[in-house]
Design a protein around this nucleic acid. Sequence first.
DNA 1: ACCTGAACACCGTTCAAGT
DNA 2: ACCTGAACACCGTTCAAGT
Lengths: 185, 185
Amino acid sequence: MRYHRSDVVAQAIAVLDEYGLESLTMRRLASELGVQPSALYHHVPNKQSLLAAVADEVLRRGARQRRAQRWDRRVVEVCAELRDAMLAYRDGAEVVVTAHTFGLGAHEPASALRSALADGGLPEDLVDVGTRAILHLVFGHTVEEQTAMQAASAGAIDRNPDGEGDFERSLELLLDGLRARVAAR
Amino acid sequence: MRYHRSDVVAQAIAVLDEYGLESLTMRRLASELGVQPSALYHHVPNKQSLLAAVADEVLRRGARQRRAQRWDRRVVEVCAELRDAMLAYRDGAEVVVTAHTFGLGAHEPASALRSALADGGLPEDLVDVGTRAILHLVFGHTVEEQTAMQAASAGAIDRNPDGEGDFERSLELLLDGLRARVAAR
DNA sequence: ACCTGAACACCGTTCAAGT
DNA sequence: ACCTGAACACCGTTCAAGT
């Protein structure tokens, strides 16, 4: 029974998806692997960096080929991929957003969006502002959507009927603002 | 030494602001009040609802008179008030955003934005989409800004030089999209 | 009504010792 | 190199008992 870091991360995702983030404890993960809690610290320095690795792996597993040519279609494509990747696992959005907030992992979507906006010919400062605004929209929307979904399936009230439609429409609002500034360049 | 719920909430904000969210534990709060942890449960049903009350009180303390007449200026005014309210206490953004995400408290900004967008003459479904999008932008931006500030003052690297400017510019991007849809109504 | 004291069922992390 | 066993310093919450 010898494990590698990747085994620990994979088992962490399995625990996350089955029991949720609040149950993803170092002790729980250790017992799921048939090992003492202290053994985990040979593969991972602490819980925070384990969660960052989980966030990166969730995004890696959700990666798709990107086909769009036009910069604004490319933005929509990257955002849809990001949303789907986070929704694929229970509490996936929360984990990815938290890792991103603390600057640990989850960097790929930001650089993909940056290069899309740069290809669109936006000035550098607007690339920065736009990238962050788009990420805030996708992260905020997806966390809210996933929380509502999970609350609904736990028997609570459902206030969020159309996740995908709302997502696309709010993204279009922001893209309108960005397109107007490309035209005026 | 008899306390009311409002004393507990006020002391919770004091602990939050001085030591941060990770130190705001029921046990810490109790000892700060000179009381046993179990005593808190006479004033508050659990920690989650205490944090919701903290979020509401943070927003109440940051409330300002709103003067703007034009709907889009009103949106900017409400968003600036919301951002300032959250920035006024350590980890304030995190607390307010978490309460909002779980639908516990922090409802006032959403309804203020809703009525501003409705006054602008936007169709009902766009009022919904727009309100959520604006909130995601403000919340996402402010959490990131506050995290960066606190990381910087703790000695880490600073990547977020212009919080307020970025905030206003990304909000303007979204408002462009909304204004275009008012014009086309 | 409000609080104490004690308990229950947990956490993340460290570290000497084993193989 | 990888893991065990035991410990340290904590958590949120419940509940009988006191005033």
